[in-house]
Design a binder for these strands. Structure first.
Lengths: 199, 199
DNA sequence: GTCTATAAAAGGATAGAC
DNA sequence: GTCTATCCTTTTATAGAC
């Protein structure tokens, strides 16, 4: 529903939490952006925390349709799909002058003592991302050493993205992100060489 | 000066910003922890932001004496010094049940639109850390391919630490950190193999 | 330099009419 | 379901005595 007010609030919250963070986004910010009033928001959500939960659920549900499918359009090679996914984060950084990176990573580090439900949803977002990358690694077959822990490598790829985003944002310079991705590419090249050597 | 009230406030702020974040730490929190009163704090600092600046300067000045020297005690091998540094972050995570990681990384992602001075200090903290690691890489000499960009690899090591901390904190499980460090160790092993092959 | 008291504003949330 | 008005708390910051 495009006019669904609940969805509209969640959508605004996704944008504002990514842009300013959770604590720095006030209920008033959400209301003024959605042109709703507090009675409306509190009709749908018991409190601000519940808006955050809805946001994290929306991100989790959106990983495939909103993130992976656009990034993977026209790309079949499983390893190139991983780098295409990383490029989509690069695109977000470039579009926003290196201010907006991964919304999940930002929230994960902003919220130090999160509600258990919130922490669980952050973890589920990371896990779903990691699983998608892990699938690509399995599809890559013998280009990766067969004895290598694919799940661990997928987590390392998430680390590369998050660390690259963090440094690019902090230095306001996309080159930090690019050098991290280049280092990961070197890692893949070395792994592929080793996989061939053992073949 | 151990009783210096200004230092005492900065010290409390370092702890509380790391524990709860900047926005979630109130001036009252700082005052109750230091047993001072608002007149005292505002005598030394024009505002809360200036406490943050003092905190970031203290972290920057503390990198060598508080972080590197303890981590490197008794360790001479330059590559093992890098992994010893990473272990000191592991120690912080374990001591705090995976709630407290790198204070600079947390602040870097919490503060989305920081004051230019604050952003610059965050960047300086990352740069100083990266430079220290880069020095180790240069000392490692021929164990690393000579054509490899040592600065970029040092940034990739920072990325590994920050990404490992982020995932360990989010999942409340140190194994995520350990697997990231293991992946980095694999990367070093592969680089060393390549360096030998070209020798 | 440190204390008390308090101003001034912002933020989360609620009540009740419509 | 949505609007207006408002309560209550927290928070940053200031004033002025000591």
């Amino acid at each position: 529903m495009p006019g669904d007010p609940k969805q509209k609030i969640v959508h605004a919250a996704m944008e504002l939490f990514a842009l300013k963070g959770f604590n720095s986004t006030s209920i008033s910010d959400l209301l003024s952006r959605t042109q709703h009033h507090s009675g409306s928001l509190y009709h749908f959500f018991p409190g601000k925390q519940d808006v955050l939960i809805a946001v994290l659920e929306a991100y989790r549900e959106g990983i495939r349709p909103m993130l992976l499918e656009p990034a993977w359009k026209g790309i079949e090679d499983p390893i190139e799909r991983i780098f295409a996914l990383l490029r989509s984060y690069r695109g977000m950084l470039v579009e926003t002058d290196c201010t907006y990176g991964c919304p999940i990573g930002s929230l994960a580090l902003e919220l130090h003592e999160p509600d258990p439900k919130v922490r669980e949803l952050l973890a589920e977002n990371f896990s779903a991302w990691t699983s998608a990358v892990e699938s690509c690694l399995h599809e890559a077959g013998r280009r990766i050493p067969p004895d290598l822990d694919k799940r661990a490598l997928a987590e390392f790829i998430l680390t590369t993205m998050e660390g690259g985003v963090m440094q690019a944002r902090t230095h306001r310079d996309i080159a930090y992100f690019d050098r991290n991705i280049a280092a990961l590419r070197t890692h893949f090249d070395l792994l592929e060489t080793r996989a061939q050597a053992h073949a």
